[in-house]
Design a protein around this nucleic acid. Structure first.
Lengths: 145, 145
DNA sequence: CTGCCTGCAAATCTTTTGCACCGAT
DNA sequence: ATCGGTGCAAAAGATTTGCAGGCAG
């Protein structure tokens, strides 16, 4: 269950560089999903010489290793988060972009069941719910633009 | 319930151009999710002069009108599909990218319940399940690369 | 040492924008 | 006739790649 952490601390078959350790730590500590550029900015605070290509190269590596998950919400680019639990889900405000995460065993079970019906080996599931958050719906979601 | 279709046939407050009609029709008839470039290629077959900017401009318009939904699966760019039903869900093969769509009232109910708990006005939900499809898991998902 | 990883710069790919003309209403 | 929509080209943004030098194993 904490294999992920092991994978993070010692990337299997790959070299552990300062840049990689730093990037993983930032991702782990981030309380929100980061995009490549945000990750780059935060990394530069500690390692001013780090380059954006290193960030992209390692995001791809981490993703391939299954250490992080790539998400696409309402904004234009990808966001990344460390995979802490097997599955967790998202409630996204289409107005302000706020993301609320939650768990649900029930959903995981449904996902497994559907996988079985379609003969898929399920590795991950994400119930992505869109709507208006309390604040935005109060401010009136019906005014044009 | 078929307001979407009405919206497509007569874009409210917007001009109905050949390009728009064409793009909507291609999206409606596509049996898979299209990205901007695929949509552009198909449109060019019927309207060789259409430009990619027109495709992007109208994808944005359709999305704002709620006529299409933007998705991001495992590939790099956005994919679009016409919203036929209120909610439908996706099973995606992480190896070959195949997408299986399915319905589930149960999921819609869960989404509503969670929305209620978090005081969100839910407008859409998508259970996004990843895994290996029958073919890919047979070919051996464990080989490197 | 050796080869993987990095920084830098340039290349590529995706999406947006400015502008003059065109066509739906 | 008006003004929103279009095509084209150029700009802006996001991501990838080539290369020479650096450092983890």
């Amino acid at each position: 269950m904490q294999n992920d952490t092991a994978k993070i601390d010692k990337l299997p078959g790959k070299r552990v560089t300062n840049q990689r350790r730093l990037l993983i730590n930032i991702l782990k500590q981030a309380n929100r999903h980061l995009d490549a550029d945000e990750l780059f900015s935060r990394a530069k605070l500690q390692e001013p010489h780090i380059s954006l290509s290193t960030v992209y190269r390692n995001l791809r590596l981490f993703k391939d290793l299954g250490v992080i998950t790539e998400r696409h919400f309402i904004e234009e680019h990808h966001h990344y988060e460390v995979r802490l639990k097997a599955d967790h889900h998202h409630l996204i405000c289409v107005e302000c972009g706020r993301v609320v995460e939650f768990d649900s065993d029930q959903i995981a079970q449904i996902a497994k069941k559907i996988g079985r019906e379609q003969d898929f080996d399920v590795t991950d599931s994400d119930l992505h719910i869109e709507g208006y958050c309390p604040r935005c719906k109060k401010l009136g979601k019906n005014k044009d633009q």
